[in-house]
Computed example of a mutant assay.
Amino acid sequence: MSGALEGVRVLELTQIMAGPFCGQVLADMGADVIKVEPRDGGDQTRRSMGEPAFRAVNRNKRSIALDLKDAADQATLHRLVKTADVLLENYRPGVAAKLQADYETLCALNPRLIYASISGFGQTGPYAQRPGFDLIAQGMSGVMSVTGEPGGNPIKAGVPVSDLSAGLFCAIGILSALHARQRTGEGQRIDTSLWEGAMALTVWETAELWSTGNVPQPLGSAHRISAPYQALRTRDGHVTVGGNSNKLYARLCEAIGRPELIDDPRFLENPDRMANRPALVAELEAALAARDTAEWVDLLLAAGVPAGPLHNVQQVVDDPHTHAREMVVEMEHPEAGTVYGLGIPVKLSATPGSVRRPAPLLGQHSDEILAELDG
């Protein structure tokens, strides 16, 4: 079956994480993503983080090596632009213009072109020229201020949420612009950033600020408006528990052998449980210390309480559900041999995504792509 984006050509002039992740999302869904890499070393990730990091966000793409400071290679890019539906770039604002790869130049060559930019802080505003890094964006977006344990040192999210969310939001923007082009026949510009991608995820935290006037603080694994809804310590690890309604809380208390906690005046209603959360956690963990995590998961699920183990990454990739959902895939790389990657997290029944090829070698498809232009 063909992918949903078959027939869509994307030129990807991006490096490191956010842009390549966006391009990979589109490539997984069937787009022909041509990664335009500098002749001297290619995507910075190849040099600074190594090929495994590069392979993680660049599968299903073809690579052409061009020096966009060279007039002949600029001309090649312009020829490619005339065949493209989308151009994706993550230069600092202003750099693309110096390379003759800016929106104004390229949309004059192809008015149907959708030109998508991912930067640290967007194309406008007082921070537009600041360098964009996931850590910096997490810190300035508010994400780091609510991550970690109460009273602890600042902690960034364990995964690069600024990079990945910017890539996802950009992909949504590209798909929206493709749909709009079906009506108007014209392309448009898309502008998003690491900072906006991270800030857009603070929906609970900004709601708390605007509704209460209180500045949100870190809560560890706990929830902002419900309790108990967090990771709780067991005899050999942690179990995550969703007891965030009176019914579920009562089931939880019964399941762990502490039914008296149901009518404890400290924990009668959710506001009481929120106000007395440290005492509640202490009571629950005292009971949970009697068994291992796996036992509690089985008991709680049987009692109708949402629960799960706290997995490390190895446990996740080994989990049978991971394989049932095809979330680990194998690819044959021309140099590294068999390599593994994450599967496609959204399943389409009629036009599913697919993993068709591993991340390319630098310039691996230059001759092939140029031959198509001369076709």
Rank of each mutant, 00 (worst) to 15 (best):
E104R: 14
R59T: 07
D32E: 15
S145A: 15
P131R: 00
D40Q: 14
N90G: 15
V81T: 08
Y103P: 12
A96H: 09
N58I: 04
N153Y: 14
V143A: 15
K156V: 10
A96P: 06
Q123C: 05
A137G: 06
L88V: 01
V143N: 05
D32R: 11
G151R: 09
V146M: 07
N60F: 00
P93Y: 06
N60S: 11
D40N: 13
N60L: 00
N153P: 01
K35L: 08
L99Y: 13
I64N: 06
A97H: 13
A53K: 00
H78S: 06
Y91E: 09
R130W: 10
I155P: 00
E51K: 11
H78Y: 00
Y103E: 15
A101C: 13
P38K: 08
R47C: 02
A97T: 14
D28L: 05
T45N: 02
R112A: 15
G120E: 08
R62D: 05
T147K: 13
D102L: 12
D134M: 01
K156N: 13
L99D: 13
V33I: 08
V86K: 03
V159C: 01
P52Q: 10
I136E: 07
K156A: 12
V81G: 03
P93I: 07
G41Q: 06
A157E: 03
I155S: 13
